[in-house]
Design a protein around this nucleic acid. Structure first.
Length: 140
DNA sequence: GCCAACGTTGGC
DNA sequence: GCCAACGTTGGC
């Protein structure tokens, strides 16, 4: 199974909110084709990291894909073709030790991460090796 | 607050 | 179809 990384500015939607909700949340608002295509590729039950950008810059926890890509309800224009889609995700568990961007950059094994090389992409693939490494760094 | 990187738009 | 101009994102 593939792994992913979801970025969010905590001011807009935070890990704390996601965790407190305890129910599926539509990952709407993505207006980037690459990010959308990543969501289209997701399978039910696949896991992803939840990353806080801008203010905190760290990976907070793990989420699970609970609904396949479907039209983004915030981007629907009646009578027009659907362009933007999103998946639904649910919080699984927090990382005991959130992993900061500075720690990721300091780790040679993670130098190839999309987060490091294309920080603007809001929904990213994470390789199995990167996934395992970050889980370990996060205390799991 | 600044700026680099990236994506999108629109004129040609 | 190319490319300059512009807007946005996100790290510093």
């Amino acid at each position: 199974m593939a792994h992913w990384l979801f970025k969010s500015e905590p001011e807009t939607w935070s890990w704390q909110q996601q965790l407190a909700k305890g129910a599926p949340e539509e990952w709407h608002g993505v207006r980037n084709y690459q990010a959308r295509n990543n969501m289209r590729a997701m399978q039910l039950g696949e896991l992803g990291f939840f990353y806080h950008s801008v203010q905190e810059k760290r990976i907070m926890g793990i989420v699970k894909v609970v609904a396949l890509a479907h039209p983004d309800s915030t981007a629907l224009v009646p009578g027009e073709k659907v362009v933007w889609e999103c998946v639904d995700i649910e919080a699984v568990k927090p990382l005991p030790k959130p992993v900061g961007l500075d720690e990721i950059k300091a780790e040679p094994d993670l130098a190839g991460m999309v987060l490091v090389n294309n920080s603007r992409l809001s929904v990213q693939p994470v390789s199995d090796g990167e996934w395992a490494k970050i889980c370990a760094m996060g205390g799991l």
